[in-house]
């Protein structure tokens, strides 16, 4: 469900980063959320972008998101930076959470650049729970890193600031230290950072590392290289999906609308219930047990392992 919210404030929070505050035009409560959640924002050009909520959920009336200007992006961030103004209205879907904070005695948080946004409410929550926690926050330069003052003022020495132009690449191995069973590692940031953290945590206990990707993880080749059929049970249609098109595009070609955003299996917008069949999951969101359940898939990237897949569309 998409609701229309109003931008009540827009401020620069670092070089190339603006924070937007969103409110309901009638002052109503906004849907509840948990740390790690993101919202889907429908921009004026009808494209959808997803942004992590980085405010406080104890304030039920505002959402806060922070947006990095991405010169080589698809234009959404430029639109937010250059066009949107306080008083403008945008469609907002969600919140959804593919990156929940699970209980732990100790947390190690690792943020790269704008990846700080979902971690901001997490460190507040870890503090509230009385957990042991540390944050390693890397970025290009100090000036490009959002919320630095807010973090260091509130949490002091728990926050380790590591701008690349001052200290070089993050020394993950020595910061993470020896594997500990009482610890969860949360990481959000650019793909090379996530890959490095995954490697550094490879010998930690299973389920220790929790990540959120803004770009897709590398995937093996699809399980099948033959066409397959997708039945859209509610619509009563069957479409053939050839190897050169996505399930999402094939479904759209027969006129069935599915809201999507990243189209690379990272945002979760196009989540679709699976009624029968076995998807070839190619997203960067679902955990292994969720894949095995075969009850949902992301048709922007995921395909079928068998001849036929039945979707609740």
């Amino acid at each position: 469900m998409v609701v229309t919210l109003e931008i009540s404030a827009k401020e620069a929070v670092a070089e190339g980063v603006v924070a937007l505050t969103l409110v309901h035009p009638a002052g109503a409560r906004l849907p509840d959320w948990t740390p790690g959640s993101h919202i889907e924002v429908v921009l004026p050009d009808r494209t959808v972008r997803h942004y992590s909520l980085c405010g406080s959920r104890w304030d039920a009336y505002t959402y806060r998101v922070a947006v990095l200007r991405e010169p080589y992006g698809r234009g959404g961030s430029a639109l937010v930076h250059d066009t949107l103004r306080p008083g403008d209205r945008v469609g907002v879907g969600g919140p959804r959470n593919h990156f929940p904070l699970v209980p732990s005695e100790t947390y190690l948080f690792i943020a790269g650049g704008i990846g700080i946004t979902p971690l901001l409410p997490m460190v507040q929550q870890a503090e509230l729970l009385g957990a042991e926690w540390q944050l390693l926050y890397g970025g290009r330069t100090r000036a490009s890193m959002a919320f630095l003052e807010e973090l260091t003022a509130a949490h002091g020495e728990r926050v380790h600031i590591a701008p690349q132009d001052e200290v070089g690449l993050l020394d993950l191995g020595s910061w993470l230290g020896a594997p500990r069973p009482d610890t969860k590692v949360y990481c959000c940031g650019p793909a090379p950072l996530l890959t490095a953290v995954e490697a550094a945590c490879a010998h930690w206990p299973a389920y220790t590392l929790r990540t959120e990707r803004f770009t897709a993880a590398e995937q093996a080749a699809p399980v099948r290289d033959l066409p397959f059929e997708v039945e859209l049970r509610r619509t009563g249609r069957v479409v053939t999906v050839t190897p050169d098109v996505s399930v999402l595009d094939a479904v759209r070609r027969v006129g069935v609308d599915v809201l999507s955003s990243c189209e690379q299996g990272t945002c979760g917008t196009c989540l679709t219930p699976v009624l029968e069949g076995s998807p070839d999951h190619r997203d960067s969101i679902l955990a292994d047990h969720e894949r095995a359940a075969n009850t949902c898939m992301f048709p922007c990237v995921s395909r079928s392992r068998d001849d036929r897949l039945v979707l609740d569309l």
């Binding site: 948990t34 740390p35 959920r57 959470n97 929940p100 904070l101 699970v102 209980p103 929550q125 509230l128 729970l129 219930p273 009624l275 359940a293 009850t295 949902c296």
Partner: peptide, 22 residues
């Protein structure tokens, strides 16, 4: 209450979701 309520709620919500009950 949140935050302690979050994890149990999420786990049970997913186990009892309409798609899981199908």
């Amino acid at each position: 209450d949140p935050p302690r309520h979050d994890a149990p709620r999420r786990v049970l919500r997913d186990i009892l979701a309409p798609s899981a009950l199908r």
